[in-house]
Design a protein around this nucleic acid. Structure first.
Length: 564
DNA sequence: TTAGGGATAATT
DNA sequence: AATTATCCCTAA
């Protein structure tokens, strides 16, 4: 936002992954010129599909409610919030462009790289959004339009390449260059033609249409360079790069007539998309907890290899989810939202080289976290007080407004929870710091004192900070190895097992009804006790749960059932 | 990997 | 205080 102020400092400015959501209209108005006529017929014959499971709540949130058929008593609508922008079914291409694409393009013109990936089930409008059709240009044509307009008088050239990665069956992925010449096209503003040809071929050729394109990834790469320097520098020296990716379908493989085929690792229709998601998830976890290594999922597919910098959080990325909102789409949509929503917490920093983290570097990171935590605790305390007071007031009045009371109480509960969360994080950080081996006598003593005293969190934070300072100052030539090895529990020194255990316990996560249903279905399909199989077949739904978690949950579900 | 027993956090 | 839901540990 403010390029002038952000400069050198290492972890200076980071921005979150932009997560957009676009809901496809239920009915194809004939204008769309859709390629699948069966769709139209189907929805005409089966009007109950009109019931929408997904609705826009605000410009940044949606509500998802299961269709009646799936309800099993305990149904509540879920809210997904925090999107950069939600585009309703009647949003126009221009609107999407303005709010999502234009900032990317403008940064691109200023030499800042970025990427946009479209993700969603096939038929949800990914391609329509990215490429558009004759009457409604998509993001790519609109972006080019803007780019050509703004570079017409400059001395810069634009390079564009477009290619497709297909992986058919279980075979190797293959790359198909869709540009007429097979190499990068040099384009000035008048030579837009080449792209049009590529576009046309992809969008309208019936042989190349649905079946294949839903399983292939289309990548468009724009590069802008100054004409002064020679054009063909392989590296992205100073040039901005803008990559637009049309990811393969993100639906789960089994339709209505499921066949328990050996699925690869999860039910993704396509390996590349799965790897893409694995990368993002790993990145997110790594950022939440730096002790977790950033796994190298990217090397598992061509696309993610190509996008490595983005997969590792080094360059900025935006994601647009396209979904269908019909009742029949509930499952796919739910899976997609559940999976992709957390990604909005991913951050990108511009710092390109982060070699090996010295402990003091890591500690500095913790210190910053502590500071933030300190603030938030303070803030939460205040809101807590405020709300509690408010609640009291309410209660002292007549009890007509019970509902309001409940809402306030809920809010307080929520705040309490996040407050708790922060405090446990403090505890966690504290234990990590202890693990760093405080060889210094003085420091060890200090730690001991801290451990035994019953300080208020605020004070504790303060003391921890000074503690860190002591460590950082007396620490110049540590080598790495600590960081990479730590995620392994066994590598932690057994100094303080009790404290360590406390800190490591995962925060309990309630089972969603989707997860429960999936578990039931899994047991039905594979049998009781095949937890590993059930888990890996549904990893996109179960997220970070373990086999044991599934087993325990099943124990619960059935125990309750028999107890009845 | 799984089944069970236990610990711990969340709810009632 | 008692009951549940989750998470953790470990023998087999």
């Amino acid at each position: 936002m403010d390029p002038a102020t952000e400069e050198t400092s290492d972890m200076a400015k980071s921005e979150n992954l932009g997560l957009f959501l676009r809901i496809r209209p239920l009915l194809q108005s004939g204008v769309r010129g859709d390629r699948n006529p069966r769709f139209r017929r189907k929805s005409a014959f089966e009007p109950w599909f009109q019931k929408m499971c997904l609705r826009v709540k605000t410009s940044r949130s949606v509500t998802l409610s299961p269709p009646l058929a799936l309800e099993r008593g305990r149904t509540k609508t879920e809210v997904y919030d925090g999107f950069s922008q939600v585009f309703s079914p009647d949003s126009s291409q221009e609107e999407v462009y303005e709010k999502m694409m234009r900032p990317l393009v403008e940064d691109f013109l200023r030499g800042k790289s970025g990427m946009l990936a479209a993700f969603g089930p096939s038929g949800s409008g990914k391609t329509h959004t990215i490429f558009g059709c004759n009457s409604q240009s998509g993001m790519v044509p609109l972006a080019l339009q803007q780019i050509f307009k703004e570079t017409s008088d400059s001395t810069r050239s634009l390079f564009i390449s477009i290619f497709e990665i297909r992986c058919e069956g279980g075979k190797e992925e293959r790359v198909f260059d869709l540009s007429p010449n097979g190499v990068d096209l040099t384009m000035h503003r008048s030579t837009l033609k080449g792209l049009h040809e590529a576009l046309l071929r992809r969008a309208t050729s019936p042989t190349n249409a649905n079946s294949q394109s839903s399983r292939s990834q289309c990548v468009i790469n724009l590069r802008i360079v100054d004409d002064k320097s020679n054009g063909e520098v392989n590296d992205q020296a100073n040039d901005g790069v803008l990559i637009i990716v049309d990811l393969a379908g993100a639906e789960r493989e089994k339709g209505t007539g499921n066949q328990g085929v050996r699925l690869l690792e999860s039910n993704f229709i396509n390996k590349t998309s799965m790897v893409f998601c694995l990368c993002l998830r790993s990145l997110l976890e790594h950022q939440k907890n730096p002790m977790k290594p950033l796994e190298k999922h990217f090397q598992d597919s061509l696309l993610t290899k190509y996008l490595r910098d983005y997969m590792e959080g080094k360059k900025r990325m935006a994601l647009i989810l396209t979904v269908k909102a019909g009742g029949e789409d509930y499952h796919n949509t739910s899976c997609l939202l559940k999976q992709a929503t957390p990604y909005m917490e991913i951050k990108f920093n511009n710092e390109p080289s982060k070699r090996r983290l010295s402990p003091s570097f890591v500690l500095k990171g913790y210190k910053e976290k502590l500071e933030v935590a300190e603030h938030e605790i303070q803030h939460l305390r205040e809101s807590n007080l405020e709300l509690e007071k408010e609640l009291k007031d309410h209660k002292s009045q007549i009890e007509v407004q019970r509902l309001d009371d409940d809402q306030v109480a809920q809010e307080i509960q929520r705040l309490r929870e996040s407050n708790l969360e922060l405090e446990t994080e403090l505890k966690y950080l504290k234990s990590l710091i202890e693990v760093e081996r405080l060889a210094d006598d003085q420091v060890a003593e200090e730690t001991q004192r801290l451990k035994e005293s019953n300080l208020e969190p605020e004070k504790e934070v303060k003391d921890l900070k000074s503690l860190i300072d002591v460590q950082i100052s007396g620490d110049d030539q540590w080598d790495d190895s600590v960081v990479e090895d730590l995620p392994n529990k066994n590598a932690i020194s057994p100094s303080n097992e009790d404290n360590d255990r406390l800190a490591r316990r995962r925060k309990g996560k309630k089972w969603s009804s989707l997860e429960e249903d999936t578990l039931r279905a899994g047991v039905e399909q594979y049998g009781v006790g095949r937890w590993k199989l059930i888990l890996t077949s549904n990893r996109d739904i179960f997220g970070e749960r373990t086999q044991v978690d599934l087993k325990d949950k099943w124990r619960n579900l059935t125990r309750q059932h028999t107890h009845h």
